[in-house]
Each structure stands twice: as structure tokens, then as C-alpha cells.
Design a protein around this nucleic acid. Structure first.
Length: 826
RNA sequence: GCUGGGGUGGCGAAAUUGGUAGACGCACUUGCCUUAGGAGCAAGCGGGGCGACCCAUGGAGGUUCAAGUCCUCUCCCCAGCACCA
């Protein structure tokens, strides 16, 4: 019998002890040295008032495992953590509870840190950063000024998205596809107002093309960015209007139907509409329609099944393509000012246009043989063109579309044009809790940037954080802050009172960790060159927002010589969420939140960490299961119990170390070293954990046949047992540290050298393979790994079971694949 | 509608990238121990059949000695984008 003992595994005391020791000894402090570097980064959190639930730390645990392993492999590891603390939630909390947002943020950060510390992370807290720290945001403002100098930050008064609840303007990226505010779910309105805008469109092509240089990004994220950038090549065609000086421009990326187009529609808010109808008898009906449309938001108008409505302007445009044809011009709800030119050439082949034409009896022309009733849809790339000039008789294809674009441009029907879905980044917010935009408005000089020596422009104290709702930020009310003298002429001037959006700080924060106390420059060039790029960037969400903005800023910083690479994050690991046990999103609202503090208290940080890595593939969304966690807890109890057994059997560690010469588990240990090493590298943590479990299951079963035999189990050698602990150390840092020291080690296991495997020892000398007859497995064969095909065939045909089944029939062929399979075909 | 990712036991999932499908964990069943708290040990656990066997990776075809994996068609689920001109 194996010695039976109650487990002495006391996670609470072990974990507390080592967390304190690691901190005291500065085990995880990153110092500059000559070792090869690894910069491992989490998307830093927004410290909300709700605290963490068990879903949040999944990514942090992954980077923790990865960075611990890298450190043990001899890399100089930078694994920092910080806080993305500007933004609306803290401000709303502050308004509600009448405290300064800074106070709320400090409290939340303290709470987050406390929760994180219980889990035993290896963050280098000496590099902690906070986007609301003036020493940090001075550089956010500095980058803005550099963009301003390069003409990439400009003022605009175009109508922008306005959230009536948050009372601030928003970027397109902050609006959900159903037209609601990403923060609060309120319907977003269009509202003209003065704002600061960053010219991200200047970088659109590079942001798009360089995605191809990121092979280690998930395809889905890259595709989302491509869609968001939305680059389209096509032709812009200009049309003269009969009896008018007006020219109508239309854009087409799909010119297959240009010969079919018979009418125009213009967006109601298009300025040309007024010109077209001024003084005509259509002026009144058109004006009424435009007024009506003003009350309907663009998003509502865009709802897929919205009825098509419009009014005839009474005017005709001349079609240069179908020589001189007269095309009636309509104003219609389905044309959008924000898309293309706001004017559409319409044909029978577009579902929308078709429905509209039928409703108002507008003549149509078809350029494709029809096979069914109703519209022939654009973009299905099928059909043979007719009545289409030189393209008649040609089959529609992607190549033909490209040819047509070229032809229309070459023949002078239109100009080649590229359009983008991505719009310039609306960068001002009419709220308090953000970085002040470092600009001064002078009566005489106009817009004057704050001189760099005057940075940071500190966010002033204010009586009320309430948004004013007038399109001015609460800062506008602080006269002593707003009124300044112009840095250029000394005359009276006013500060810009808009603040930056939440995304500002996160667009460059990863550079700050490199040199967190550097107040002289954004980042020391030499250190930047040493640490960048980030080797692994881990996070979820933000496929298009943060990850596009950060790439944009980084490219800009590259252009002005501050950073040395064009892309900040060559490898991105996207993580899946953890749902509640009921399969729903974990949320206070559903009352299904599991708190990591409770889990850690009951089962310990190690079991929690191990479970979060074991729960499923890192990138997939999976439901939480406290029962599943019990499994990893039991596993750690077994690990602990295994050490207890060693002590019981050998008496002392010294005896185990010096007198025990057997090692029945050498092979599987080497196999596990290989598996765990490779799996951590490729973020396959679930199978790494499973291979460690398999290893321990085997340790139990193996028999030793010499001295120190415990009936029912043998032990690995002292050295090999330490290797096993090392493999487990990144996942379960506390229990392994404790046992490591129990085994007589003085240094931290986390600073020890990662075990390597001997490729020779990984190979089995025999394998069990399946023997199939006509592709169906009928027997098993245990054979030497290096057996030749002939040997395998002979051995398989000699198996009694096979002889019996063949019943004298001779096989047609035998396929023997060494170390894989034997298939006998009869 | 477009794009991306998926559909494998009761559940979370593995599968050497074309080679014995279901590793590992949970749940469950049986037995031992008789156990204070999600304890331990042994055995079992996709479905059907007493059986040798048969059927099984959303569905239907195909390629192959061999398909969860490759090809064609098709049906669902999740995410992002969408009256995109």
C-alpha cells in the first residue's frame, strides 16, 4: 500500500509567504542587461469600480506563464502593468458620488492591484504607469503637438457623432453599427460643431498594406481592420445637368452597371439639392422632403428595410456613357452624404434602385440577360453583359470589373478614384476627465500650439465635472485657467477647452514602460531600440479601435524618428472571454459574477491559474466551471502528496538526493519537457497543463524494480523531480517554489534555468500502432520504432487475429507507414 | 448580404496536420475505505448488440489503401461590417 496521508497542502500560507518574499527580493524587477530581451505586454486595464471577475485575469495569467518561462529560458523579460484611467466611467462615477475622478481612480487602482496581487503575477511594479499622471500625459500632449506641426491635427466643423447622454462628440469608431453610443447605448445624433480631428486617413494605405507584414496576427483581427479601413478603387464620373451650371459627381467601384444606369438620386442634405431646384416649381416639394428627412437620423434612414422615399427635382443630367441619354435626378432617403459623393447613379440591377424606380415609375434599362424576375443583384459576379459598348458579350468577373475601371478612366469618362470607409479621427471630447488639448486660441494669431516647454497643460481643478451640454467642456467655465496670454504675441488668448478621447493614452503607453521616469524625452532612443517591438501583445476586444489607433500613432512616431520600427506589435495573441457558468456574459446585472478573490481564498491562486489555462483553447470563449477548477485543485494536491510520499519513503531529502539511483521516468519526463516548452511558446496552455497531468498519472503507475520500491509506485530521480517542478512553475508559481525550497534549493525556482530535453530520449523504442484490414482497425501491433516496412508487414500478417480474419485470403497490397499504421487491403 | 471563426461524448475539449477518433479534466456508475467540509483508492464511462461485429466528428456526395483533417454542395451557431453606390 502506498502510504496514506492527509494532504498537508496549505495554499493560503504558501502563497502569502512567497508573494511577500518575491516582492522583498525584487525577483521580477527588470534591469537593463545584455541578455536577449522579451517584451511581453497585456492590454492594460481600465480600472473600473466593479473590480475584476474571473474572466479578466485570463490574459494576464497567460502572459505571466509565458514571461516566467521566458525568464527561465534566460531572457531579460519586461512584463509591466499599468492603468488606462482617463475616460467616461470614472467621470460618471465622480459626478454621481461627488468625488474627484482622481480619487475614484486611485481607489479603483488600489482595489485592482490588491486583486491582481493575490493571483501572484510577476509584474515589475516599479514600472507601473498611469495615463492620468501628468508625467505621463505630458507626452500624450507632446505627440499631439508633433501631429499638429505635421498638419495631422486640424480643426473642423463638420457634423460629427454626438451622444446626447454622454454629452460629447464621438469618433466613428465609438459608434456601434446600430448607431448607438459604444459606452451607454444611447442613439447617436449628427451635430455640427468645432472639433479637433486627427488625419488618420493619410495613413490609411500604410495601415492597410502593412497588415500583410503581420503574419503573427489572427486573421480575423486583420480582416476587421481591412473592413474598417474599407479601401475601394473605382472611377468618379462627372455629369452636366441640363440647363444648369451644376456638375454631379458619382463614384463607382463596380462599373458593370454603368451602361444600365438611368437615373440619379442625391442625398437630401447635399448642398447641390438647393441649387438644382431654386426657383423651379419643384422647389417646394423638394424643400418639404428635405425638411422631413432632417428629423430622421442617417442611421435610421439606413435601416435595411426602411422604405425608399424620394422626390423628383425636375432636372435631368446628361449621361456621357450612354451618349446623351437624359437621366432624371431625384432626391431620396437612401442616399447618404457620408458615403462616396452623396450622389448615386442608379440602375435596374441594384435591389434598392430597382425598388425605388418601380415605386416612382422611372424607366429602367437592363444590360444582363435575365434569368428570373426582380432585380439582378450587383456583386454576384455572374451574367453576360449586353448593350454595354465594348463590353457587350463579355462575362462579368473580377478581372472584367478591373478592366472596366481602367477603360472608363482611360476613355475619359471618369477619373480613377480611391475611397475609404475610415474617416479622420474625431479627437476632441467635451468632457472633463481627459488630457487637455495643448492649444491656445489667440484673437490675433489664431490657433497657437502650447510651446513644448510649457507642457504638460495640467488638467485644472473644477467645481463641477458635469458636462455642460452646450458643446463646451466643463473646463470652459474656469476663467483663470482659460484666459492666458498668447505665447506668440502676448495678447489676450484662450485655452482650448476640449479634452482628448480615452484612446489617446493607450495609443502609445507601451513606450512609457521602457523608461517610466524619463521626463526629458518620450522615450530614450537607445532603450527604445533595445526593447521594441513588443514581442507578444495579448488582449481581447479592440480589434479595430485601440489596435488601429496605436498602429497609426506608432507609424507617425516612426516617421518623426522617435521609434525604430513601423509596427509596434508584430505578434498579437487574441484571447477569448470567459462566460458565466450559465453561458451568459458575466455581469452584475445577471448576478452571475464569480470573484477571483473568493476563488483564490478557497482553492488558492495556483489552482485558479492552472484552471484558467486548462479551461480551453486560449482564443476561444468558454464558460466558467467551479467544478472544473476542483480538478486542477486535486491535481495540485496530488503534486503535494507526491512530495509527501517521497519524504515518507526516503526519510530525508538528502537520502533521496544522494542514495536513490533509479529513474524509471526519464523518457516521459523528457517528452513532457518538449511538449510543455513548445505548447507555452505557441500559447497552447490547455494542452501543456494536460501533458503535466498525464505525467503525474504516469508517475503513479510505473513500477520500479530495485531499491526503494514503494509498492504501487516508484519515483523519478531527484534531478528529474526538480525538472518537473520547473515545468509546472510558470503555471503554479507558489507551490512549486515551496517544494523547490523543500528540496534544498536556495534561489527562486523562477530564476532557475528552464529544463531542456534530449531529443534522443524523447523517442520511444517501441510503438503500438493499429493494424487495419480495408481501412478498419482490427488489431494492434507493438513493434520497434525503427522497424522497416517489410518487418512491419511480416509482423502484422503473423498476428493471430489477422491470420484468423484473413482466413487464407492473400492480401492485395499492404500499406505500412513506419510509426503510424499498417493497412492490409484484400 | 459580405467577411472572419466555428459545429467532435452529458459538459470543457484532444487528435502527431491524411494514419488506432474522444488524450486530459469535469460530471456520472459500481466497488473498497467508512470518509467532518468540492477527500482517497480500484474499475467503468460515444451509441447499438449476448457475441465475433456494426454505427458514429452538423448533413449529402467525392478523392484516397486510409478523411474530424483534402475537394464540391448544403444546413446551423458566434463575431465584425453593412441601403457601401
Amino acid at each position: 500500500m502506498k502510504p496514506q496521508k492527509a494532504s498537508q497542502y496549505n495554499h493560503a500560507s504558501i502563497e502569502k509567504k512567497w508573494q511577500e518574499t518575491w516582492q522583498k527580493d525584487g525577483v521580477y524587477t527588470t534591469k537593463e542587461n545584455d541578455k536577449p530581451k522579451q517584451y511581453i505586454l497585456d492590454m492594460f486595464p481600465y480600472p473600473s469600480g466593479e473590480g475584476l471577475h474571473v474572466g479578466h485575469p485570463r490574459g494576464y495569467i497567460a502572459t505571466d506563464v509565458y514571461s516566467r518561462k521566458k525568464r527561465m529560458e534566460g531572457f531579460n523579460v519586461l512584463h509591466p502593468m499599468g492603468w488606462d484611467a482617463f475616460g467616461l466611467p470614472a467621470e460618471n462615477f465622480a459626478i454621481k458620488h461627488k468625488v474627484h475622478p482622481r480619487v475614484a481612480v486611485e481607489k479603483n487602482i488600489a482595489r485592482f492591484k490588491e486583486q491582481l496581487s493575490l493571483i501572484g503575477f510577476d509584474y515589475d511594479w516599479s514600472r507601473e504607469i498611469n495615463t492620468t499622471d501628468p508625467a505621463f500625459y505630458t507626452w500624450t500632449q507632446w505627440i499631439f503637438l508633433q501631429m499638429y506641426k505635421k498638419g495631422l491635427a486640424y480643426e473642423s466643423s463638420e457634423p460629427i457623432n454626438w451622444c446626447p447622454s454622454c454629452q460629447t462628440g464621438l469618433a466613428n469608431e465609438d459608434v456601434e453599427s446600430d448607431g448607438t453610443c459604444e459606452r451607454c447605448g444611447t442613439k447617436v445624433e449628427k451635430r455640427p460643431m468645432r472639433q479637433w480631428v486627427l488625419k488618420i486617413t493619410d495613413y490609411a494605405d500604410r495601415l492597410l498594406n502593412d497588415l500583410d507584414k503581420l503574419p503573427k496576427w489572427p486573421e480575423g483581427v486583420k480582416e476587421a481592420q481591412r473592413n474598417w479601413i474599407g479601401r475601394k478603387e473605382g472611377v468618379t464620373i462627372s455629369h452636366a445637368v441640363e440647363g444648369d451650371d451644376v456638375v454631379l459627381d458619382t463614384f463607382s467601384a463596380y462599373p458593370a452597371w454603368l451602361f444600365a444606369d438611368t437615373f440619379f438620386v442625391i442625398a437630401p442634405e447635399h448642398p447641390l439639392v438647393q441649387e438644382l431646384v431654386r426657383g423651379t416649381e419643384q422647389e417646394k416639394p423638394v424643400f418639404d422632403f428635405v425638411q422631413e428627412m432632417k428629423h430622421v437620423s442617417e442611421i435610421e434612414r439606413g435601416a435595411a428595410n426602411k422604405e425608399k422615399k424620394g422626390v423628383f427635382t425636375g432636372k435631368y443630367a446628361i449621361d456621357p456613357i450612354n451618349k446623351g441619354a437624359r437621366m432624371p435626378i431625384w432626391v431620396a432617403n437612401f442616399a447618404m452624404m457620408g458615403f462616396g459623393t452623396g450622389i448615386i447613379r442608379c440602375s435596374a440591377h441594384d435591389e434598392r434602385d430597382f425598388a425605388f424606380a418601380k415605386k416612382y415609375d422611372i424607366p429602367l434599362k437592363e444590360v444582363v440577360e435575365r434569368t428570373s424576375d426582380g432585380p439582378i443583384n450587383a456583386h454576384d459576379n455572374s451574367g453576360v453583359l449586353k448593350d454595354s459598348g465594348p463590353f457587350s458579350g463579355k462575362e462579368i468577373s473580377e478581372t472584367l470589373i478591373k478592366e472596366m475601371v481602367d477603360w472608363f478612366a482611360k476613355e475619359g469618362y471618369g477619373k480613377r478614384t480611391v475611397t475609404y470607409k475610415i474617416k479622420d479621427w474625431v479627437f476632441s471630447r467635451q468632457r472633463y476627465w481627459g488630457e487637455p488639448i495643448p492649444i491656445i486660441h489667440c484673437e490675433k494669431c489664431g490657433v497657437v500650439p502650447v510651446p513644448e516647454k510649457d507642457l504638460p497643460v495640467l488638467l485644472p481643478e473644477v467645481e463641477s465635472y458635469e458636462p455642460t451640454g452646450t458643446g463646451e467642456s466643463p473646463l470652459a467655465g474656469i476663467n483663470e485657467w482659460v484666459n492666458v496670454s498668447c505665447p506668440s504675441c502676448g495678447g489676450t488668448a484662450k485655452r482650448e477647452t476640449n479634452t482628448m478621447p480615452q484612446w489617446a493614452g493607450s495609443s502609445w503607453y507601451y513606450l512609457r514602460y521602457i523608461d517610466p521616469s524619463n521626463d526629458n524625452e518620450l522615450v530614450d532612443q537607445k532603450k527604445e531600440h533595445h526593447w521594441m517591438p513588443v514581442d507578444v501583445y495579448v488582449g481581447g476586444d479592440h480589434a479595430t479601435r485601440h489596435l488601429i489607433y496605436a498602429r497609426f500613432w506608432h507609424k507617425f512616431l516612426f516617421d518623426i524618428g522617435v521609434v525604430s520600427q513601423e509596427e509596434p506589435f508584430p505578434r498579437l495573441e487574441f484571447l477569448g472571454f470567459i462566460l458565466a457558468e450559465d453561458g451568459k456574459k458575466m455581469s452584475k446585472r445577471f448576478g452571475n459574477v464569480v470573484n477571483p478573490d473568493d476563488v483564490v481564498k478557497q482553492f488558492g491562486a495556483d489552482a485558479f491559474r492552472l484552471y484558467e489555462m486548462f479551461i480551453g483553447p486560449f482564443e476561444s470563449t468558454v464558460p466558467w466551471s467551479t467544478n472544473g477548477l476542483v480538478g486542477t485543485y486535486r491535481f495540485l494536491e496530488r503534486v503535494w502528496g507526491y512530495y509527501e510520499d517521497i519524504k515518507t519513503v526516503f526519510g530525508t531529502v538528502d537520502k533521496y538526493k544522494n542514495d536513490y539511483k533509479l529513474d524509471p521516468f526519464n523518457k516521459i519526463i523528457h517528452q513532457t519537457i518538449k511538449k510543455v516548452t513548445e505548447d507555452i511558446e505557441s500559447f497552447k496552455f490547455n494542452t501543456a497543463v494536460s501533458s503535466l497531468m498525464i505525467l503525474f498519472n504516469n508517475l503513479k503507475e510505473e513500477e520500479t524494480d530495485g531499491a526503494f520500491v514503494v509498492s504501487g509506485g516508484g519515483f523519478p530521480s531527484y534531478e528529474n523531480f526538480k525538472k518537473i517542478l520547473q515545468l509546472l512553475a510558470p503555471f503554479a508559481p507558489h507551490i512549486t517554489e515551496e517544494l523547490w525550497h523543500e528540496l534544498g534549493e536556495k534561489e527562486s525556482i523562477h530564476l532557475s534555468q528552464w529544463p531542456t530535453y534530449d531529443p534522443q530520449k524523447v523517442l520511444d523504442e517501441t510503438v503500438t500502432i493499429g493494424v487495419q484490414i480495408n481501412g478498419k482497425t482490427r488489431a494492434e501491433l507493438s513493434i520497434r520504432t525503427d522497424a522497416s516496412k517489410e518487418e512491419m508487414e511480416r509482423a502484422a500478417l503473423a498476428l493471430p487475429r489477422i491470420v484468423e480474419l484473413l482466413a487464407g485470403k492473400s492480401p492485395k497490397t499492404v500499406i505500412a507507414v513506419p510509426r503510424r499504421i499498417i493497412n492490409i487491403v484484400v
